[in-house]
């Protein structure tokens, strides 16, 4: 396999990283909202939060992607396919992250919140200054895991025609008749990125000690 092909794969892997990063970030925001909703005392909110989590964790990502990719145009929303792909990935990871964050929110010690009440923090301040930092720190290891899962899952967006790492390897394999080399190289790139994420996560976790209850 020539360097030219490998270079194309590396370029495509940057696209893969971009798509995954954007999806994880959007997913974190939606996931926080969903976990707050499912923990809310309001029944309607908590049921819709839990239904969201159950649906997006219960349906294969491939089916979700195909559904969103075809649903948006049917609803008259014409967006580039990469937007549909990122929407699908974000919603899916939001459901998993909501579940992780829910565990984090639930393990915030009650005493801290009572103390915050006593000193007169508003409920938003309590969320921003106490609950969110603790929940995030507790959920960080699973967030790193989730980032690795999404990086791998992003290979599925190749089916809606996005030329990320997997699709690039597929196209090059078809035109060069060298599937073994190309898919192995693509796999190696995924491995390297995953190692980098895991390494970055462990460094970050060690330096991320604030807010420890």
């Amino acid at each position: 396999m020539s360097w030219k092909l490998f270079e194309l794969l590396v370029q495509a892997s940057f696209y893969t990283v971009q798509i995954s990063f954007i999806s994880i970030t959007i997913g974190l925001v939606i996931g926080t909202a969903v976990s707050a909703a499912s923990l809310s005392p309001n029944r309607a909110l908590s049921i819709s939060g839990r239904t969201f989590v159950s649906f997006f964790r219960g349906v294969p990502l491939l089916v979700q992607l195909l559904l969103i990719y075809n649903l948006l145009p049917a609803l008259g929303i014409n967006v580039p396919s990469v937007v549909a792909a990122i929407t699908g990935l974000s919603l899916c990871t939001a459901a998993y992250q909501a579940e992780n964050l829910r565990g984090g929110f639930q393990s915030v010690p009650r005493g801290l919140l009572e103390a915050a009440d006593m000193v007169g923090l508003s409920s938003f301040q309590q969320f921003r200054r106490i609950k969110a930092p603790i929940a995030l720190r507790l959920a960080l290891p699973s967030l790193v895991n989730e980032a690795i899962m999404i990086l791998k899952a992003s290979s599925l967006v190749s089916v809606v025609g996005i030329v990320e790492l997997t699709r690039m390897a597929q196209d090059l394999a078809a035109s060069t008749y060298r599937p073994i080399e190309l898919f192995s190289a693509a796999g190696l790139l995924y491995l390297i990125i995953n190692w980098l994420i895991a390494w970055g996560g462990s460094v970050f976790e060690r330096s991320f000690r604030w807010g420890r209850p």
Binding site: S154, S155, T166, A169, P179, G187, Y190, L191, N194
Partner: peptide
């Protein structure tokens, strides 16, 4: 185990089926 857990299932399938 590390390689299989670190790479997408789809890539493994392509390697097996096309390679």
């Amino acid at each position: 185990v590390e390689v299989i857990r670190g790479t997408p299932f789809l890539i493994q399938l392509f390697l097996l089926y096309y390679g």
